[in-house]
Design a protein around this nucleic acid. Sequence first.
RNA 1: CGGGGCGUGGCGCAACCUGGUAGCGCGCCUGCUUUGGGAGCAGGAGGCUGUGGGUUCAAAUCCCACCGCCCCGACCA
Length: 574
Amino acid sequence: MRWSQVFIPTLREDPADAEVASHKLLLRAGYIRQLSAGVYSYLYLGQRTALKIMQIIREEMDRIGGQEFYLPALHPAELWQETGRWDQMAATMFQLKDHSGRDFCLGMTHEEVMADIARHELRSYRQLPQIWYQIQVKFRDEARPKSGLMRLRHFIMKDSYTFDLDDAGLDASYKKHYDAYCRIFTRCGLHYEIVEAHSGAMGGSQSHEFMVVSPAGEDRIAICVKECGYAANLEKARAGLKPVSDPPGDPKPEVFPTPNVRTIEELVGFAGVKPEFLMKALVYVIPAADKGKQKDQIVLALVRGDHQLNEAKLGDALGGAPFRPAHPDEIRAHFGAAPGFIGPLGQKGVRILLDDALRGRRNLTTGANQNDHHVRHVTPERDFTGEYHDLRLVADSDPCSRCARPLRVASAIEVGHIFKLGRRYAESMGARVLDRDGRQVTLVMGSYGIGVERILTAAVEQHHDPEGMKLPRSIAPFDVVLTPVNLNEEPIRQAAEQLYAGLREARVEVLYDDRDERAGVKFKDADLIGVPVRLTVGKKAAEGKVEISERSTGQRADARISEAVGLVRSRYCG
RNA sequence: CGGGGCGUGGCGCAACCUGGUAGCGCGCCUGCUUUGGGAGCAGGAGGCUGUGGGUUCAAAUCCCACCGCCCCGACCA
């Protein structure tokens, strides 16, 4: 393409609304423009890279036997009501009515639609397994869209769904996706981590996320520095413990005054006790399902003073029941003391959960359920009882639960997520086939997502410098930018035109900067949009030479014009 | 949804506190010069100051309401 004829609206300055590097650069380089919060238009360059990313995904999905569908984005409410997600997802779903008042929504994902096709069409185990996928727009009414293409309300997702006869079949389908995802992200030039993921409200037995470590990411993961292989989403991550030796003896619990000492830090300063000898008490409420008949359930979660509670784990421990932090007045009503002075002693009708790190501990200090007082010499089991669960949020440099080396906690961008769904959707929607013995068997499903914009965002975050993007060739909008330094000089113009024709002939995707601009402007723009290779045609054109430079490394070398096309092809477009 | 910030030519900003009818840089258009890292000179186009209401002789500026965007938090298969 000739630059003078395509629309690449580059910006000299950072847009005021952009904070993270990828957002600034994608705007400045003319890839995208914002239409509304979390809604972006993809201009020429943005669409070119999006198409390349989608093509890589498509090739790898096809390679594992995936079949591409195109499904509606507009769904009738009944479909989502069948699985209960119409109400469950209402907060983040775009719901609307048609002219006659019938309810519809814009699809956030396509389990229901795919399962609907499956239940109508799949009859026999002989038709299994199936891998169906689509690459399509999804809608989520995110409470807070952010960071450019990081969290969108309107985004492109590759989502695939597998249908198998049994768990072994699901395992195989899952493995295929796992491997395909590795190939996809590698081909997109990403350095990524695969982490164990929390299944969350979706249920399901196993789940992995593909994460690109970046300070701009909004997820947090724990990775073992020793590469013993352990890596997990922080919601799910477990860690070992460094041993703590408690004071010996069996003194009785003793209440002592702690005026205005509410936080762990204050208590450490006031009582001179290290935080690992403290027990932090957090109060949660499980609201009663039937307000008239039942009372809200009060839950007391106890963790070590220097630990933090992981609410995802708490949710698991509570069996998936909805819960929320208690309000201060609820705490006062149930415990007779203000937040900051709460503890487990003498509580009735309160469900007590202890973090595993408190197992076998003794002589701990905690709240006395009396304002301005704490109590010391508290020993679990002897003084109170509760259920033990893993409730702790892993912190940076905690020992790896597998190899005891330190764990690193890092921010990351979730680019892919694979999920063993099991039978939930198939069951609620009645998707069954006949097995070998002629019996009705519920299908076993998996679901697997990739965020197309997230790949682009992550790639820019991972590959950029102050001058602009440095996209890997596989997803860059062009292979080569051809930059004549001054088109008014006839040898330069001739050489450039000759090279442009030669590159096109050789099927190299070339952007020919034929604009009537000064060299500096062209260089700046080329660096900004991140084309991996630049062919600069300057004064040496008269001697039959051009310069080849690499955006990612900055390396430059001269080449003979006659050989330049072949060189570029063999070295960069293989 | 809670907290904070911001809405002024295409972009980045100033003028607002202390009301008097809008300015700077970049970009854009024309011409001349220049030509390997965002050129110089000259001339020019472009803004009912987010919307609605109020106060005032007079509102970008003060007051009220609304809308939008960004950031932090909550939320997030």
